[in-house]
Design a protein around this nucleic acid. Structure first.
Lengths: 232, 232
DNA sequence: TGCTTATCGATAGTGGTACTGTCTAGTGCG
DNA sequence: CGCACTAGACAGTACCACTATCGATAAGCA
């Protein structure tokens, strides 16, 4: 298969394939001559994985690269790969500012309460702490009370994730790693989407003021939310 | 308060304040002369909210603008504001490709099963469907089975969200809207962080192969995940 | 009144990310 | 033989979120 065929099968432009090759996300094909390289189905699968991580999982190219490297490296223990995936998936939320000690202590307290054990470097903790800081900074310290419910939900989800890893069978390392990594990257999107749906449902159940004003299905006068920001 | 004082109190540079003024995220102060504008604590609060949405919530400037406009507009029913926040917070996940009918049908089935009711335009559905598509595209249709557990978690979280809105008291519209919007934007980060922690905990509980190899606390040879992508 | 410092508003420039385009030189195939 | 296709290198683009600079004031102080 030449690059144009690979492009067709993977739905990635030739230019982008070249880009991913350059960036090291996609392994090279077999060069048969100076102007000919053979690609195969592994390249197709890889490109689909790349796109899933980037488009659906929202990873940067650099983060996707790190994650793919973890999948590829047979010598890398699964738990390391796990950490890499966590960092990669989480990178966009890792701002430069340090969370306050107060919030970090609250996270630690929650962990103790739930019996959660992790290493210090778990990227989740500063992220959570910074959210708590933000709640306080905007004058809504009451929102800190959301944390236990979110923690319960997080536990539910993570148990499901781990179950799907174990079901793969512990003999196939690369498949296990892939499951972990993909589950983490795409699971965020899955949860976010479901949360949106559940939120609308529950909001309607509650009959929030204004609910009745919402257009009936069929009236398609939508509140305009232009993602490009030409709002209002 | 002049702009330099505002800058100090909000921890936002003067240049960035000017930028947010230009972009319409921050309302102007009271101009007392051609070179003097008075800002007050409302500007400080607003800047903190802007930063929370952008830094912690990961919104783009344009999305933050739409969300702030929804908070500001007293004539906007809460449920509209809700939809705007959903779109804004979700925009980065809304890729251009359409999800398959198969996946959309699966989402619809889940909704029916759970008794969830929403309007067609809920942005969560295509997001979820696209994740399901991605699972299949990378040859992991088994991961679709994760959805029910995620849905349960989503329901848990959204109920907590709504509870925090109602607790505000239904008389203060702008505060309710703010709660909805902030909860949605920052809640994603909160959940993501907690999920990371829970995942590490559960992975260790399970004793995944490789767990024992992980450095003991104190050994700080970390698996290098350079977010800039110079990995390996 | 003169001088310094701050500010306003406008516009231009920067750095990062993810591609996309162009070019040269070299095949494969009918 | 001719022409579409290809490899590989590198320059260019588009968008985003700032950041820097500038001329024209204007306020505070001596």
């Amino acid at each position: 298969m030449r690059i144009s065929a690979l492009s067709e099968q993977s739905d990635v432009t030739v230019a982008s394939i070249k880009f991913y090759l350059r960036e090291g996300l996609l392994f090279a094909g077999e060069s048969s001559s100076a102007t000919q390289t053979e690609y195969d189905t592994r390249h197709v699968a890889r490109l689909r994985l790349i796109r899933a991580l980037i488009d659906v999982g929202g990873l940067s190219v650099a983060a996707a690269k790190a994650v793919l490297a973890a999948i590829d490296d047979d010598a890398m223990p699964i738990v390391y790969a796990f950490g890499i995936a966590q960092h990669a998936v989480t990178a966009s939320l890792a701002s430069s500012s340090r969370p306050s000690d107060e919030s970090l202590a609250e996270v630690a307290a929650l962990k103790a309460e739930r019996g959660w054990q992790t290493f210090e470097e778990n990227p989740g903790e500063p992220i959570v702490a910074r959210v708590l800081d933000a709640f306080r900074a905007i004058g809504r310290p009451d929102l800190v009370e959301l944390m236990p419910a979110y923690a319960e939900a997080a536990e539910l989800v993570s148990r499901a994730d781990l179950r799907s890893v174990v079901e793969v069978g512990t003999d196939d390392r690369s498949r296990m790693v892939e499951t972990v990594v993909v589950g983490m990257a795409l699971g965020d999107g899955l949860f976010t989407g479901l949360r949106r749906i559940a939120q609308e449902h529950n909001a309607r159940q509650l009959g929030l003021p204004g609910s009745s004003i919402v257009r009936e299905p069929g009236t398609d006068q939508e509140p305009e939310i232009d993602p490009k920001g030409n709002a209002s």
